[in-house]
Design a protein around this nucleic acid. Structure first.
Lengths: 191, 191
DNA sequence: GTCTATAGAGAGATAGAC
DNA sequence: GTCTATCTCTCTATAGAC
């Protein structure tokens, strides 16, 4: 349980620091300090900051998708599932591990670093669209509902909610936006 | 027209660079290079990076609010105004000058830097809530509409749309989210 | 007000011993 | 695989001359 070798410790610390500080705000030295790993080990396992970050980002993206998949697989109507997803426990002020990186200048500039973010959001979008489409098929939601656009709206509400919450230094804007979205979704559920 | 002195040039360049790279990603040296101003001048007019950034952020926040105010003052129904605001010309991939800073670790950590962001979003929220409340009063929107939550949802959709667009390196997610929001708003406009 | 010189600290990586 | 030493840049700011 401690043979969870050095490499894993580096990845775990990098995931943590990317979440806290982003890519430009995170230094290799900080990773070493956080993980307790030495300089030599880091450059033995990874070519440098970028490669380590890439592995950490892919790991985070994978976890995010898995988690969403579990939550959206729960039983209930489409709106039940969406509601559970929206209202799950979140550390709102920390924000989204993936979304916060989208704003990082060095990440959006490097395709190898940006691509995992795009893939993660593509996955989430598909999951949500699937739930909504099923809701339409079962007659829970109006047939006129634009499934793709609604899925994107759900993602945007969450990501934007995090942004507003950080600006306000309060979870309230996030919660308010989510409430606003749910009200509109419920009102349009049926004709 | 060139006596728009050195101080203004520094602020203008800082606004630009904060938008492009955020606070942690922007160095004083980059500001000097971008503005063509010398080291000595910068430290004569400002105590350092933080103070210069603060002035630049306040300037950007002010411009953002003014612009929104103009757009939302146009004639038409509440939904017309919101629609015009949502669909105005935007450089989607550059994102929001203010929103992008909310994710910056050094900005959300320093109250003097974060506060202007909070104030800007408070202002926008009030403007939007005002438009929606007026729509309710005029019978254009259902009385049951949660005005505050809906205003927050509009802001979140935009901010989240920017995040998703940067991750995808495409404006499409932004446009899709906005479309999804407008569809829901229109569907709930009246009973 | 603006310029150049300088400086301590950290970023990001390489080298070579063990 | 890991350690310590070293290196080149850059960051952010100060000092003092002009």
């Amino acid at each position: 349980m401690d043979k969870t070798n050095t490499k894993e410790a580096l990845i775990a610390s990098t995931m943590e620091l990317l979440w806290e500080r982003g890519y430009v705000g995170m230094s290799p030295k900080a990773i070493l300090k956080h993980s307790g790993v030495g300089q030599g080990s880091m450059y033995h396992h990874f070519s440098g900051k970028a490669e380590l970050a890439r592995e950490a980002i892919e790991r985070s993206a994978g976890e995010l998708l898995e988690q969403a998949q579990r939550q959206l697989a729960a039983p209930g109507t489409a709106l039940d599932k969406i509601g559970a997803f929206l209202e799950r426990e979140r550390d709102v002020l920390r924000g989204c591990r993936i979304g916060r990186l989208a704003q990082d200048p060095d990440i959006s500039a490097a395709d190898t670093l940006r691509q995992p973010l795009a893939a993660a959001f593509d996955g989430l979008r598909r999951l949500l669209a699937g739930v909504l489409a099923e809701g339409v098929a079962r007659g829970e939601l109006r047939a006129a509902l634009d499934v793709e656009a609604s899925a994107e709206l759900i993602l945007a509400t969450l990501q934007g909610g995090y942004v507003l919450a950080r600006a306000a230094n309060s979870a309230q804007p996030f919660e308010s936006a989510v409430r606003g979205l749910q009200a509109l979704l419920q009102a349009t559920a049926r004709d």
